[in-house]
Design a protein around this nucleic acid. Structure first.
Lengths: 137, 137
DNA sequence: TGTTAAATAATAATGGTTATTATTTGATAT
DNA sequence: ATATCAAATAATAACCATTATTATTTAACA
């Protein structure tokens, strides 16, 4: 998990400006295990930066993903979710409450690009679907 | 892979009407390995059913997914893709051309629901991301 | 063949995301 | 410290996949 200073260093190293809006977003991401959507983050950051616009949230998230500091999850077809934890782990989506639960297991899912039409393998995601305990009670 | 008659039988068994529009969609799905989006299918089916509406495509795809005859892929954040092949396999998305390539390997990615906040595990998807051979040339 | 609930076509609405643009500002050089 | 300027912001419009609505049509069955 990254610390605030990791985000700042990375932005500086890439000559991307550090603004109060971005610092507020960085702070929301540090240690965040809730897999927030852009809208979730927007609502939270409004409390610290009441005049922030939605576009700024998207812009900052895009930059973070480009810099490899944030993972975009393709697990929920309704919206994108973001995960600042880049350690190898995967996710479970409860189809009822849409909660995303971390699965801290390192599955052996290597593929041999050479054997397929694939030239570079950059990442992978393992997504599980079902119902969480709350929702099946 | 299902045959046309499998789709027909399943719809009949569930008292869901079989219409020319739906038959055209069934035919497009049989043996289809292109992982089409709803729009892809709409464009194709227009050639056989020129007056079909988009809503009918979505309606039929939803029914197929509900009946367990079609898999919805959460791999492309831009749109949903559908796969009529329900055998255990996974997918690679080329970030450049958005092509989806089948990965016919059965990874051992079991999780123990009991140990987490999970009560029922219904399905999983393993998604790989990178560049295909065409796009890195 | 008539009946009826379900499906269709047409289209409006929704919601997440992206694009646009005038204004403001962070970072650098002076 | 200040000026400069490219980049970022806020506001908002546009986009696009998907879902909802509704009057009309039709598949399935009696």
């Amino acid at each position: 998990m990254f610390l605030l200073e990791d985000y700042i260093k990375a932005f500086r190293a890439n000559s991307i400006k550090i603004t109060p809006q971005r610092l507020a977003i960085f702070n929301l991401l540090v240690g965040n295990t809730s897999h927030p959507s852009a809208d979730d983050l927007y609502k939270e950051v409004l409390k610290i930066q009441p005049s922030i616009s939605f576009a700024t949230v998207y812009n900052t998230l895009d930059k973070l993903v480009e810099l490899g500091l944030l993972q975009k999850l393709d697990i929920d077809d309704e919206k994108k979710h973001y995960d600042p934890d880049l350690s190898i782990h995967h996710h479970f989506l409860c189809k009822a409450c849409k909660q995303i639960i971390d699965i801290f297991e390192n599955f052996n899912v290597n593929i041999q690009p050479a054997s397929l039409n694939i030239s570079s393998l950059e990442s992978y995601q393992v997504n599980f679907y079902g119902k969480c305990e709350n929702c099946s009670a």
